[in-house]
């Protein structure tokens, strides 16, 4: 049933069926989320600036999710020698990098009016900057090796080493004193964000994920074709 996750031809077959509906659903979700955000209430402290959150938080989550997927496929690829997992690693690294950059830029634009600074070297901001650098290294590593086998293994191992950064990013705000505030949504007690702001945030996260998924599908398809030619 889940063969399409590791088998290129199954993947292609499934994509041929679902791609068009997926694009339509994505467009609808994006429009709905933008409308929801337009009508979402202003924050009691931050006013209008709180709307940066609807870009900042989804891109932060997706930068972590993309890396999580790459970590999963690196383990699978190394342990079970499945070539498709390396195709995915190569295809989605730039997507993760873009989400991380979006997160950094929007966070910077949010920090200036609220904290009074574009950038500080606290644990959360620094660890996300490191995540961005790790993504860049993965993209560069894809260019520098001649032998495909060496390249794929090196990158997979590098991804695994870099995955230590994920828990550090997640818990940096709890472990150390940081300027960045602690988590609002993903905590054990009920989220400390009002439901009228949580709903648009979750819908926007869904549309971000769908956009990411579409780009990922296109890149994976292209990568499969390139490997067929070579």
């Amino acid at each position: 049933m889940f063969k399409f996750l590791i088998n290129p031809s199954r993947f292609n077959k499934l994509i041929d069926i679902i791609f068009r509906p997926l694009v339509i659903i994505t467009s609808i979700t994006l429009v709905v989320s933008l409308v929801l955000i337009y009508f979402s209430p202003l924050d009691y402290q931050q006013g209008l600036t709180v709307k940066i959150m609807y870009i900042h938080v989804p891109s932060a989550w997706l930068s972590l999710l993309t890396y999580g997927v790459m970590t999963f496929y690196s383990i699978v690829g190394l342990a079970f020698k499945i070539p498709f997992s390396f195709i995915i690693n190569k295809a989605i690294a730039p997507i993760g990098a873009v989400f991380t950059l979006l997160c950094l830029i929007s966070g910077s634009m949010w920090g200036k009016p609220m904290w009074g600074t574009w950038w500080v070297w606290d644990a959360r901001l620094t660890s996300v900057a490191i995540l961005f650098i790790i993504y860049l290294i993965i993209i560069f590593l894809n260019q520098i090796f001649d032998s495909r086998e060496v390249r794929e293994k090196t990158i997979a191992i590098f991804i695994l080493i870099g995955s230590i950064n994920l828990p550090i990013i997640k818990f940096s705000v709890d472990w150390w004193n940081t300027l960045h505030q602690p988590a609002s949504v993903s905590k054990l007690s009920s989220p400390s964000i009002d439901i009228s702001m949580l709903q648009p945030l979750l819908v926007m996260t869904l549309s971000f994920s769908l956009i990411g998924l579409i780009i990922a599908i296109l890149r994976i398809k292209a990568e499969i074709l390139i490997r067929k030619i070579n």
């Binding site: 209430p41 505030q181 400390s192 964000i193 009002d194």
Partner: peptide, 9 residues
């Protein structure tokens, strides 16, 4: 430094 609470005005 702002906290993690968000609430409509």
């Amino acid at each position: 430094k702002h906290d993690e609470n968000y609430m409509p005005a």
